[in-house]
Each structure stands twice: as C-alpha cells, then as structure tokens.
Design a protein around this nucleic acid. Structure first.
Lengths: 223, 223
DNA sequence: GATAGTTTCATACAAGTGTTTGAATTGCAA
DNA sequence: TTGCAATTCAAACACTTGTATGAAACTATC
C-alpha cells in the first residue's frame, strides 16, 4: 500500500493553482513544482492530466453538493418539509459566495476551484458535468414545494437568475469594485448574499405574494 | 496600397471561430485555414496573434458600444433627458441577448464574439478591457438620472445584476434548456429580454416605487 | 539481509504552438 | 517591358505541452 502522500500533494497543489489562475495557463510542470514532486508523478498516479482534473472535479463537486444539500435538508426539516424560498436560495448561493468572496484568508479553495470549473469549460469536466443538473433538480423540487402556485417555467428562471447573480458577482467582483469606486463592498459577504437572495426572491414571488418587503430591509434582516 | 482582402478575410475568420469555439482552442492554423490564406499572413498583417485578437476586440467593442449608446441616447432624448429605467436596461442587455440567442441563423457574430471575450479573459483583451468600465459609467449616469432617489450603491448593484442575468443566461442557455426540459424557451428572445429587464427593474426599484407590476405582466407588455 | 513490488527520478519523445525566413509571385508605376 | 515594392508561400525554427521510458531508490515481506 502506498503512502498516498504524493497523490494528495498533487491534488492539493492542482486545486490551488487552478483556483487561482484557471485551467488555461496552469501546466503539469507548474503543478509538480508547487507540489514538490517529480513530473512523472502525475501520470503515474492519475494516468493523465485530464484524469487528474476529472478526479479533482468529481471529489470537489461531491463535497460542495453535499454541503449545499445538507443546508437545504435542514431547512426543509425545520419547516416541516417546506422551507421559505429565501432559505432555499440562501442554501443555493450562500456557500459559493462565502467561499469565493470576503477576506482573502478565509476564502475556500474548493469554492474557488468549483467556480473556475463552472466558468472555463475544459473537456474532462464538461464530460462529467451532467451530474450537476441532477443536483440542481433537487433545488427545483424544493423551490416547487416552497412556491406551489408558481409555474415551473418561473421556477427555472428564478433558479437561473439566482445562480447568474451569484456567479457573475464572483467573476466580476474586481470590476464591480472598480466601477463603483469601492462603494460596493464585496468583502461584506453577507450583504452580497442578502442582495442576491433578495432579488432572486422578488423574481420568484413578484405578482403572487401579498407582502413584498423592500430589498434593503431584507438585506438587513439577513445579517 | 494593399488590397486589404487578406486582412479582412483573417479578421472575419478569426471572429467567426472565436465566437464559435472560444479563444482557448482556436489556433492560428485554424484561422488561416478558415480564411484560405497562408499561415504567415497573420504575422505579416497583424504582427502577432495577440495583436490580431486585440484589433478584433477593439473594433468590435467600439461597434457594440456605439450601438448600445445610440439606443440609450434615443431613449433619453425621447424622454427629455430622462429615460424610464426599463428602457435603459433594455438598451444595456437587449442587443447582446438578441445577438447571442434566438434562431441560429440570425445570431450576430459580433455579439457572440464579445460574449466570448467577456468570458475567457485572454491576456491581450484583458489589457484593453478597462475601457468597458468607462462605457458602463455612461449607463450608470443614465440610471442615476432615471432613478434620482436611488443610492449609487443600489444603482451599481442593479447594473451588475442586469449584466449577470443576461450574460449567464447566454452562457448557460444550453443547461437551462436541458434542466427545464425545454420549458424555458431560449429562442423566444424578446421574452428573455423582458424577464431580465423585469427582474433588474425590480431590483432597482423595490422599496421605492409605488406601483410594482408583476413580472409576467411586465414581460408581456414588453413584446 | 535478500528479494519483489512500488514509487521516484532524470531524461527523452512526439505533437502542437506562434513566429521567422528567404525565395517566389504579384501588382503597379515609369 | 522593366523595375521595384508589396504580398504570398512553403518550410523551418524555437519553444512548450503532455506523455513515455528505463534505471534508481525505496519499502515491506520473507
């Protein structure tokens, strides 16, 4: 039986580098340098670069999904099988936003890696990615239970927009900071989460719900 | 004086290929094959691959910005210097959505190229991209005029979310179709535009405006 | 401590990249 | 036509990429 030390060193180094610089310009030689192992180690332990990426993506996406689904499950159990839409949306976008924004030192490598994977659609990942749809379906179901009057189409669009706002804000956080001359504080992660959840909730409930609290109030409540 | 034929053939071929397959896996040899010119022609006419990409991006982004700003200007003139927020948002996201979604044969290469450029942040483009911020500022100003009571921060966030929804919907249109099993019709571009504009408008006006028409009604009005 | 299996290592390899070169061709003015 | 500059072309170059190889080092079992 092997020590596994080299294997996990490679995985960790690759995850870190991919999260930081994207798949495009990280070479095998970069990874082995970061991991302090020999160049041939990657092919020995993983077979090929693509298989390394695939394993990275599979393990990390399982972990991420488990976290999001756990948060969702807890919420639904508390509500007797039906969670408020805000809570569902929070479970959907909260972990990713928290892992990618905020103070540098508390960002999670996993979250940043997963965002990269969702942005740069590199072949080995694209092949696996169908599973994510199954994962999203669980959120669709929860949203349906939460908003039984809402049409499916509206649910799908609401989900799409929620993910859109979260992912785009992460990807373009630098530009938003520059554009707003620092007025938009991307380090205040909970405010960002609250804003995304608030707008997504409005998208999903407009024209149906009787009470419609203003966005800022919602954002404040959420802290 | 040169015929310029080769130059523009290269530009057109590159634009098409980049729009279709992204910058990542389009090589110079792909481009010259598509353009039916010799490999050395790119370096002869543009100096380098990066300069080709840069020229492509500059000319195309000027064209795109001009179109969006024209739409905005017309709207503001009609409203005596102050356009309704829906119209401003429509000028912001409409052209891009229309150019990237809808029936295959009426998609615009320019719009799809620009979306690629905004997704895959390749070095030669990243260097130029600051101009886009100046362009966005003009929309910020228009939005401020349209919603004088709104705080700057809210304006910036509203703009960010509007772009988020538009771009993400384009990028993930395939996944949304699959997830919704075709129930979300991405070919009905005007409905997509209306949905994005409607949600972004809610994000920007919630808690202030007195009348808040439901999302579907807004979407329907817009056609 | 010898041996067999596993893991590491330096090195080489094949394929693909953008770029350069220098000769051939073209187009146009004198 | 002649001459000259602009353009095209095939070929080669220098470099980087992922992968393969075979010897060396290590580890554990007997």
């Amino acid at each position: 039986m092997a020590s596994d030390h080299t294997r996990s060193a490679i995985l960790a180094a690759a995850e870190r580098l991919y999260a930081d610089r994207g798949f495009g310009d990280v070479t095998l030689r970069d990874i082995v340098a970061e991991a302090n192992v020999n160049l041939a180690a990657v092919n020995y332990h993983f077979g090929s670069k693509d298989e390394l990426i695939a394993e990275l993506f599979v393990t990390r996406s399982i972990a991420t999904n488990r976290e999001r689904l756990h948060e969702l499950k807890v919420a639904e159990e508390q509500g007797g099988g039906r969670a408020p839409i805000e809570v569902i949306l929070r479970a959907l976008v909260g972990p990713t936003l928290r892992g990618c924004l905020g103070p540098e030192n508390q960002r999670s490598t996993v979250a940043r890696f997963m965002i990269r994977a969702s942005i740069e659609s590199v072949p080995p990942i694209r092949r696996i990615k169908n599973r994510e749809i199954d994962h999203l379906r669980k959120f669709v179901s929860a949203m349906r239970r939460s908003l039984p009057d809402r049409s499916d189409v509206d649910i799908y669009w609401g989900l799409n927009f929620a993910l859109a706002m979260a992912h785009h804000t992460i990807r373009e956080s630098e530009r938003l900071t520059k554009l707003s001359e620092g007025k938009c504080d991307l380090d205040d992660v909970e405010d960002v989460v609250a804003r995304v959840v608030s707008v997504a909730t409005m998208a999903l409930t407009a024209g149906r719900t009787e009470t419609k609290p203003p966005a800022r109030a919602l954002a404040r409540d959420a802290r």
